[in-house]
Simulated assay, not measured.
Amino acid sequence: MSTDLTGSSTPAPAAGRSPWRNPLVVTLAVLALAAVIVAGLAVRGVFGPYVPQPDSVDVGFAQDMSVHHRQAVEMASWARDHSTDPRVRQLAFDIETTQNRQAGIMQGWLGLWDAPTLPSDGHMAWMTAGMNHPGDDMASMNADGSISRMPGMATAEELARLRATPPPQLDAMFLQLMLRHHEGGTSMLRYGRDHADTSEVHNLASQMLTAQTAESQLMTSLLLERGAQPLPAN
């Protein structure tokens, strides 16, 4: 408090007073922060439908993993019906039901995104350009960076041999083909988990990776019981 020449008292100026004690400044700062948060959430599709681009990780993952899953379901359904080992039949049933459900989820996303249910040409172009996938070579690499066959996929000849093989030899062949199939999809699962824009794809890829890692460990042990070795990566 100070006294002027007339003897009246006036309040002393608030030197160095923080602007954050001003209610208007605080309100404006809160609104600005909220706008930034809302904008970030909108990109992720929290407020309203977020539609990934056709060449996005999310769309490519859903398309390619649907194809990958369909072959796993085909092999698993055959082993479920023809194996004589209860453990193999149970494993095949689990893979068949789980991957059928997951493929349905991914196809549902593609429908909501108005995206093709299947890739139009090759596979895995949605992953990093020039990334070396198991089994890649110049003959299998397309001009757009995609590949003709995804890692782990069985050939038509291998599928035919699986159907023609009687038990108990069927069990070892199924385990070999499915183990290679699971391991071949690992790079896609990790990339989808780490680079997807939508939380749905991120979460599903993470769940798939956890489940298939456990199944791969079980298949490895079942193969060792039979004196069989895993197939090399393709």
Rank of each mutant, 00 (worst) to 15 (best):
Ala205Val: 07
Ser146Val: 02
His202Leu: 03
Thr186Gln: 08
Asp85Gln: 14
Trp20Cys: 07
Ala29Thr: 12
Val67Arg: 02
Arg70Asp: 05
Ala32Lys: 11
Gly130Tyr: 10
Gly7Asp: 06
Pro49Val: 03
Thr98Phe: 05
Leu91Tyr: 04
Arg87Cys: 04
Thr213Ile: 11
Thr3Cys: 11
Thr155Phe: 01
Met173Trp: 05
Ala214Asn: 10
Gln207Val: 05
Asp197Phe: 03
His82Phe: 10
Leu159Asn: 08
Thr213Cys: 12
Leu177Cys: 06
Gly60Val: 11
Ala39Tyr: 08
Arg21Ala: 10
Val51Cys: 06
Leu41Gln: 08
Ser216Glu: 13
Val46Gln: 03
Pro13Met: 03
Thr27Pro: 00
Thr213Arg: 15
Ser187Leu: 09
Ala143Thr: 13
Gln212Thr: 03
Arg70Ile: 09
Arg190Phe: 01
Ala103Thr: 08
Leu204Asp: 01
Gly111Asn: 09
Arg180Asp: 12
Asp171Arg: 01
Arg163Ile: 12
Gly7Ser: 14
Asp171Ala: 04
Asp194Val: 09
Ala172Tyr: 02
Trp113Thr: 01
Ile105Lys: 00
Val26Ala: 13
Met124Ser: 12
Leu175Glu: 02
Met138Gly: 09
Leu222Asn: 01
Gly111Thr: 15
Ala172Arg: 09
Tyr191Leu: 08
Thr27Tyr: 01
Ala76Asp: 00
Ala14Ile: 13
Leu33Gln: 11
His195Trp: 04
Gly45Lys: 10
Met127Gly: 10
Asn203Arg: 07
Ala160Lys: 09
Ala39Thr: 03
Ala196Lys: 00
Thr165Val: 14
Gly104Gln: 03
Trp113Ala: 05
Leu28Pro: 01
Gln169Gly: 15
Arg17Val: 14
Arg101Trp: 03
Leu162Gln: 00
Pro86Gln: 05
Ala72Val: 11
Ser120Val: 06
Gly16Met: 08
Met131Gly: 03
Val51Pro: 00
Ala154Trp: 08
Val57Leu: 06
Gln229Trp: 04
Gln107Tyr: 15
Asn203Gly: 06
Ala62Cys: 06
Trp109Leu: 14
Asp55Gly: 03
Leu33Met: 15
Ala143Asn: 14
Pro86Phe: 12
Ala103His: 09
Ala92Met: 04
Ala125Val: 02
Ala39Ile: 09
Gly227Ile: 06
Thr165Trp: 06
Thr3Glu: 15
Met106Ala: 04
Thr220Tyr: 12
Ser8His: 07
Leu24Gly: 05
Ala29Glu: 02
Arg80Lys: 13
Thr220Ala: 12
Ser66Cys: 07
Ser77Arg: 12
Gly16Phe: 12
Gly185Gln: 03
Asp121Arg: 11
Leu5Cys: 11
Leu204Ser: 12
Leu162Met: 05
Gln90His: 01
Leu209Trp: 05
Ala156Phe: 11
Pro23Glu: 10
Asp136Arg: 05
Leu209Cys: 04
Ala154Asp: 08
His181Gly: 14
